[in-house]
């Protein structure tokens, strides 16, 4: 991945529950609200990758490999602030 690009990883149920759908919508709105590249990737709990994160509670959201929310729908406003903070910290170090 590009050093300046970011990734949301959503670990969800199969089939996705209502909350999983809501989280996906919030992530899309968040990505649309920032001025840099952020990818969204969805995987199901049955995958080896999900198990490697020790996913126990869904929906689980990881940002650049770190878990930021489990079992809840994160707030778009908070996600935008978090992304901008991480992005500017990373830009400072480049």
């Amino acid at each position: 991945m590009d050093r300046m690009a970011h990734e949301f990883l959503l670990i969800r149920n199969d089939p996705p529950c209502k909350k999983c759908h809501q989280v996906e919508d919030v992530l899309r709105e968040t990505v649309d609200a920032v001025a840099f590249d952020v990818e969204i990737r969805c995987i199901t709990t049955a995958t080896e990758e999900a198990r490697s994160y020790g996913a126990l509670l869904t929906p689980m959201v990881l940002l650049d490999g770190k878990s930021i929310s489990a079992g809840m729908v994160p707030r778009k406003g908070g996600l935008v602030k978090l992304l901008e903070k991480i992005h500017s910290e990373q830009a400072d170090t480049v």
Partner: peptide
């Protein structure tokens, strides 16, 4: 704290499996 809506803490939807 930044991304969590306080009112969501401890809630769980009817169709949400939550725990794997």
């Amino acid at each position: 704290r930044l991304v969590t809506a306080p009112e969501d803490i401890g809630t769980c939807g009817d169709d949400c499996p939550c725990f794997i």
